[in-house]
């Protein structure tokens, strides 16, 4: 199956995201937590209790499905009350909770509609209300925004984050959209080929990717070959192809010598005049993007290096295509990647 080795802990009231390309095992992991699939080995604990042998209907988790999976033979209100009815709640409590939930997702006016008579965004909100109504301890969300158009998706991202903060429920969110993960999550687990590559906060993951896959999957990155001179703790000294040395961030426990790969975000480096900076090359291309401009530099060792600089109203670019330029970046910017 799709999951090789995954071990993680998720805290109470956390917005936790499983991020990875399709087929990386993120949905399988989510379905295991929900109880639709069982792991061949390993355990699954929730609040200190082993739930690996519990069937889905006995787990205190609810799921928002990618396809929403609304019951087509029930109305909006009946869909939302389903879980509460199954739990055997008293009628007046069910009614109160359903009203509250429809209020929460702004669907009160649609209570008696069939699910086929409402739009995709509305279906999405009903699916959310249905999963939140039984007040689960953990809410699982399987790419719930992927079927929505761009604008609606943006709105729902903020909406989901608001709901999570208001209800205090732990959200486990699955997505392949890195931007979605970065904007909503408290912590992100980046997955690839059935295992977890890195866990950390959005800033952590973006600024300090642990390995090439993570650096490549999230945002744009420049990769540079460099020689490790020394390493202590999270700091390393590396020698670049230009012969100059600089300080870089490294994983705890990086040691030894030899060639390593550095990752540098395009917006973390800046252009300088010829002879300045720690790398030198020729400015190959300048691409204007409105909010910012991309500078494509061919370094002297042949590597391509992209820089991104925010545009300001006054300053026209002082660099010309074809000219010799230098590239500089700060001590904490380059990240030594794990092999």
């Amino acid at each position: 199956m799709a999951l090789a080795d995954a071990s993680l802990e998720i805290a109470d009231n956390e917005f936790f995201t499983l991020l990875g390309p399709s087929g990386c095992g993120k949905t399988t992991l989510l379905r295991m937590i929900a109880g639709f699939e069982s792991p061949t080995s390993g355990t699954l604990e929730m609040f200190g209790e082993n739930i690996v042998d519990l069937p889905p209907h006995k787990r205190p988790v609810n799921t928002v499905f990618q396809s929403y999976a609304l019951f087509p033979h029930l109305t909006v209100a009946q869909n939302i009350s389903f879980g509460l009815e199954m739990l055997g709640k008293p009628k007046d409590e069910i009614k109160a909770t359903v009203d509250e939930m429809m209020e929460l997702v702004q669907m009160t006016a649609m209570a008696d509609r069939q699910t086929s008579q409402i739009s995709g965004g509305q279906q999405q909100r009903v699916a959310l209300a249905r999963a939140l109504a039984p007040k689960p301890k953990v809410l699982l969300l399987d790419e719930p925004l992927s079927a929505l158009d761009f604008k609606l998706r943006k709105e729902m991202q903020l909406e989901l984050k608001r709901l999570q903060t208001e209800t205090g429920i732990t959200f486990i969110f699955v997505t392949h959209d890195q931007e979605e993960a970065l904007t909503m999550s408290d912590r992100i687990a980046v997955m690839s080929a059935g295992s977890i590559r890195q866990i950390g906060g959005p800033r952590d993951i973006y600024d300090h990717p642990a390995e090439r896959f993570v650096a490549d999957f999230i945002g744009d990155t420049n990769f540079l070959e460099a020689e490790l001179v020394s390493a202590t703790g999270q700091t390393a000294e590396v020698r670049l192809s230009s012969g100059k040395t600089t300080m870089a961030r490294a994983q705890e426990g990086t040691e030894g010598k030899g060639m390593v790969t550095l990752a540098i975000r395009p917006e973390h480096a800046s252009l300088s005049g010829e002879g300045e900076g720690i790398l030198a090359g020729t400015l190959d291309n300048i691409v204007y993007f409105g909010t910012d401009t991309h500078y494509h530099v061919a370094l002297d060792d042949g590597t391509a290096f992209v820089l991104r600089q925010q545009n300001t109203p006054d300053a026209a670019s002082q660099f010309e295509k074809g000219s010799r330029v230098g590239v500089k970046f700060g001590a904490d910017v380059a990240q030594v990647l794990r092999d």
Binding site: A34, G35, F36, P55, P56, H57, K58, V61, N62, T63, F65, S67, A69, L70, F71, P72, F82, G83, M86, L87, R130, A131, P134
Partner: peptide
């Protein structure tokens, strides 16, 4: 039939018979 409907019901605490 969409299998995820039955999974959704199980997820919402319905026993197999329900």
């Amino acid at each position: 039939m969409d299998l995820s409907l039955e999974q959704a019901a199980a997820d919402l605490y319905a026993t197999p018979f329900q």
